[in-house]
Design a binder for these strands. Structure first.
Lengths: 203, 203
DNA sequence: CCATTAACCGACCACTTGGTCGGTAAAGTC
DNA sequence: GACTTTACCGACCAAGTGGTCGGTTAATGG
């Protein structure tokens, strides 16, 4: 599984470009990050950067697709398509936290997109599709009687994934909190509430 | 209570400038919004804009302070300083939702700040101070036994206010959901969980 | 050694950016 | 009607923007 001996002069891979670019986008904001600065961070000239990539927009597009592909993959896993709706919902929540923790910079970037360009609007459209899947899952869980019906299901879905998405604001892998522990804490707090559970309640 | 007859030629008030500027910042992003575009939206020349305001940064500073002042005011209200910690926490959550609904554009802008300038860094510092107050409140509620102790209090606080802050992503006043109803739904979901409550549980 | 492939660079370009400056237009005060 | 105060404008500027172009350098394959 060593590098398969590419032709030509060796240099940066698309992946190493992406890592640096997405980090810069998240630190300074996409619009506020210039191609000159990206080049400087990579230790190469701006024109060399354009050899790898057609423009700033393409960097953004690839990064956003990476986050979105990860999230949609979760919705196609077995745990998300079979069994009671509440279980499928929990699976999607845990899976989303896992993707968020694994691909943190990419998901962070995705959640900051505002629709300023075609690339951003396409990403927003895919996000809305994901939200629709979640919303349907919550509605099914309400119908099956496992999720409270005194709050609008659409609102429940938004609060739940608002909580998940807000993790990008503070969670940093490598600290004491692993992705799994984070998912546990979130699922417990969101599904069972942050009040002290009454005695005799199973975990 | 009519306008108190100002001297000189009448024109835009600072408040009308702010409203338009913050709306533009939220739509396109602060960095991506040019002074030329602000001037166009206001029906003014760019140089006239500079008559009212010392620069783009000042517009941002005033807007961010407005959001922060509202949030800190909540933490000084009676309900946030007296009584059991769980009640004070709920008061701060409800108050934050109220401020968020009332000053939505300003709070939205605040939550997107990344620290790219002195103005932004100062706002971030005040936000951290607010987070500290919340974190202390959660810790007190855990000590008093009213909030679950099987999840790190700091994490609880972040999840809780992550949920509150995520409201800026979708809540729009003027729709069917009032600010109070929103606060009710959020408090219920966050404190008691989104699972169907067991029978015989008081609301 | 030589062709091919890929990575890279410096100089350049049209355009936009935040911000300045000297002057004008409209209101209130006396 | 003179004076002051405030609002406003067009023209301008240095610096930075995303992107282009023609050429060079370093690796592999034969």
């Amino acid at each position: 599984m060593t590098t398969p001996a590419r032709r030509g002069r060796p240099g940066h891979s698309l992946d190493s470009l992406l890592t640096v670019a997405v980090a810069a986008f998240n630190e300074r904001g996409y619009e506020a990050t210039s191609m000159d600065e990206l080049a400087a961070r990579l230790g190469l000239s701006k024109s060399a950067l354009y050899h790898h990539v057609s423009g700033k927009g393409e960097l953004l597009r690839i990064a956003l697709d990476r986050a979105l592909d990860g999230l949609f993959a979760v919705t196609r896993e077995a745990g998300a398509t079979a069994g009671p709706a509440i279980g499928r919902l929990e699976h999607v929540v845990r899976g989303s936290v896992r993707v968020l923790a694994t691909e943190l910079p990419f998901v962070t970037l995705l959640l900051r997109v505002r629709g300023n360009s075609d690339v951003e609007r396409a990403a927003l459209e895919r996000r809305r599709e994901f939200d629709r899947i979640v919303s349907d899952l919550v509605a099914a869980a309400v119908r099956e009687g496992s999720v409270r019906d005194d709050v609008d299901p659409a609102v429940i879905g938004r609060l739940l994934f608002g909580t998940v998405n807000s993790l990008t604001e503070w969670y940093r892998p490598g600290g004491p909190l692993t992705g799994d522990a984070l998912a546990d804490a979130l699922v417990r707090a969101a599904f069972d509430g942050l009040r002290t559970p009454p005695p005799g309640t199973a975990g």
